[in-house]
Amino acid sequence: MTMEDSTNPQPILQVRDLNLFYGEKQVLKKISMEITPHSITAIIGPSGCGKSTLLRCFNRMNDLIENCRVEGSIIFGGKTEINDRKLDVTELRRRIGMVFQRPNPFPKSIYDNIAYGIRVAGKVSKSELDARVEEALRKVGLWEEVSDRLEDSGMALSGGQAQRLCIARTIATRPDIILMDEPTSALDPISTQTIEELILELRENYTVVIVTHNMQQAARISDFTAFLYQGELVEHSPTKIMFTRPAEKRTEDYITGRFG
């Protein structure tokens, strides 16, 4: 299902008329958008506008919320309907991983944190497991820092390290898409910079969708930006265009800081 056609790639996610309700309250309104493979898409918008909710639609994390109802369609890789009730969500989430706002390593060793996703997917040999753990840690630049203490608890890492551990944990399951929900908002500026550089590197192998309420961050790292306002997708365009010549008045107001 990986996209080989690089000239005019088929979108990896196609969202059509997505509505989402928490009980009676409609939180996402008729959202339609496409995500280009091997790109970084930033979702911006004021707090409470539905960014996290939209992101969690892509890997069905909203299933955990009892009174949540979803309408519309999200096609993954051109053929898989994500909102299909019969879909194996565990398989889906292995293909579309997620990194959360606060680093949330398991109270397990660093090694077991990374190995977790691989192990739950099925049996693998010890040597392959070792190799994949090392590969994941190298990709996030954590290998040098922790290779001699893989048995230490993942909880003992600093905030920035812990978040990189969480990214490595996601990478280790070899997803196609990585969703990130404000991954740096709980971190200091230096850790934030490290993570941003990491995200830029990830573009080579993965598709990244990142929620941020930091517009500079969106401008710095994303190829495309989607502006969400009160549950509606106001504008979705290449980041350069969005931040220089926004098509919509509301977008301009938001990015120039007139509200939000």
Binding site: T90, N104, P107
Partner: peptide, 15 residues
């Protein structure tokens, strides 16, 4: 047990 741990596990494709 914090909800975030469950979310992390589910998001990694664990049932």
């Amino acid at each position: 047990v914090p909800m975030t741990l469950r979310e992390a596990s589910l998001a990694l494709g664990a049932s």
